[in-house]
């Protein structure tokens, strides 16, 4: 599934960031890269708030759509 499909409160593990994403390098450097676990804290319109470790990132659906994730229990 894609990060953009994740629900509020859901914990996910990042599989990869697809290279078609224009912000591919930046997304990964900001902490969203393979094997990292993250939690979707909230959603507002096209935006979602994701916590990765101690970092909180706000990203739009356009970017989240390029991030492949596995849901975690």
């Amino acid at each position: 599934m894609r990060l953009s499909d994740a629900l509020q409160g859901q914990r996910i593990k990042i599989v990869k960031v697809r290279e078609e994403c224009a912000l591919h390098a930046k997304v990964q450097a900001m902490g969203l890269h393979s094997a990292r676990e993250a939690t979707v804290l909230s959603r507002s319109g096209r935006m979602m708030l994701v916590e990765v470790g101690n970092v909180r990132l706000a990203l739009s659906d356009e970017i989240a759509g390029y991030v492949e994730v596995h849901p975690q229990l």
Partner: peptide, 10 residues
């Protein structure tokens, strides 16, 4: 408008 990605500081 373009996509958005920002970090929220504490």
């Amino acid at each position: 408008s373009s996509a958005m990605l920002i970090e929220l500081p504490p």
